[in-house]
């Protein structure tokens, strides 16, 4: 174990821990755009800088390993000045449209700018030319003008999803994130939206017609029902309607979802969706109550008792594993039939 002091507080952490994480253990949140436990270190946003006694330079805490007796200051005057300049530089090249930006309320640039008193009127002049949005994907679009080039989207796509559809183009001030050939299909993008999930600003946003504010929603933790992996996700609900699905980083999926989990939720509010059981009457399926449906099943079972092969059970992939398990158990043990199937043909 290594002992060090951060902002006057002594802490003991394991070897090879970064200063950023050690600080987090103390409840000190060091700002960062590009750091993510799941991804390789890019150390490019330079926001997580700290002052270490005995060193003139400001050091990035995301890749700085703790050392015995280290004395770290995350809030010194020098750090705050550098942070404010850094954020002001980013802000100078960023469109001032928080009022109509869908990321507002969940935007890290907005939060840090508030914390470090960045003026709304840019004090620097940086950006040369605006770069057009890339809207080739069905589910999300890239707005390079709002991009701070933290590279999380690029890294999650190649390192976690294993696709590598995104990359940097051009150099210096003209750098922007895009698909190869600027088209999502050509790049092999699988539309999983993991890039959208990790974006700290409004550069990667879902295409949506829903108007909602991020502080005016409820988040409901649930398990994805599309397959057996059990991805954890949060349904973002606005006025009783699901408007977005966020990946949950605590689940075994570690913040990743596939295109179905992330984007295939419109069926919930679809007009064709069944909301009651259907019972065939006079050769036609009609809406019924659950009591009616159970009564019908009971009646048919008693009628054909002993001829187990007359029954077929068909279940849905929308049900959970547990529900499907019980369903087949009932058919095999109670109805004594193996005629049972499922629509999951993923």
């Amino acid at each position: 174990m290594i002992k060090l002091i951060i902002n006057g507080n002594q802490i003991e952490v394991e070897e090879n821990t970064t200063v950023l994480k050690a600080a987090r253990e103390l409840g000190i949140e060091i700002p960062t755009f590009c750091d993510d436990d799941r991804l390789s270190k890019q150390t490019s946003c330079r926001l997580c800088i700290v002052e270490v006694e005995g060193t003139d330079k400001l050091l990035t805490s995301c890749n700085l390993e703790v050392k015995e007796g280290m004395v770290v200051n995350t809030e010194s005057e020098k750090v705050r000045i550098a942070l404010k300049i850094n954020l002001s530089l980013i802000w100078a090249g960023h469109p001032n449209d928080c009022m109509k930006c869908g990321k507002s309320g969940e935007c890290k640039l907005q939060d840090y700018s508030f914390e470090y008193d960045v003026d709304a009127e840019p004090i620097y002049s940086v950006r040369k030319e605006a770069i057009a949005k890339n809207a080739t994907n069905h589910f999300f679009e890239i707005d390079p003008d709002k991009c701070i080039l933290c590279g999380k989207c690029v890294r999650i796509c190649s390192e976690q999803v294993g696709v590598g559809a995104l990359g940097f183009k051009n150099r210096g001030q003209e750098t922007y994130v895009s698909f190869g050939n600027d088209n999502f299909e050509d790049a092999g993008c699988v539309s999983c939206g993991s890039c959208v999930s990790v974006c700290p600003t409004g550069a990667l946003l879902n295409k949506t017609a829903d108007k909602y504010r991020n502080w005016d929603v409820d988040k409901v933790r649930t398990t994805c029902s599309y397959c057996g992996v059990g991805c954890q996700m949060e349904l973002v609900v606005h006025k009783g309607k699901i408007v977005r699905v966020d990946a949950n980083e605590e689940g075994s999926n570690r913040g990743l979802l596939c295109v179905k989990g992330k984007y295939a939720f419109n069926f919930i509010n679809h007009r064709d969706r069944l909301t009651t059981p259907l019972v065939r009457k006079n050769g036609k399926l009609v809406e019924a109550t659950w009591e009616e449906a159970y009564a019908k099943i009971n009646q048919k079972y008693l009628e054909f008792k002993g001829e187990s092969n007359s029954f077929v059970g068909f279940s849905s992939a929308r049900c959970t594993n547990e529900e499907n398990y019980l369903f087949q158990k009932m058919f095999r043990q109670v109805f004594k039939t193996n005629n049972i199937d499922h629509c999951a043909r993923l």
Binding site: S44, A92, S125
Partner: peptide, 22 residues
């Protein structure tokens, strides 16, 4: 430098452009 900055880190990418403008 503004032309030759690779664009990876913020201080060099944006900072040098701001210095140039000043």
């Amino acid at each position: 430098i503004v032309d030759e900055s690779c664009g990876k880190c913020t201080p060099c990418r944006e900072g040098t452009a701001a210095i140039h403008k000043m």
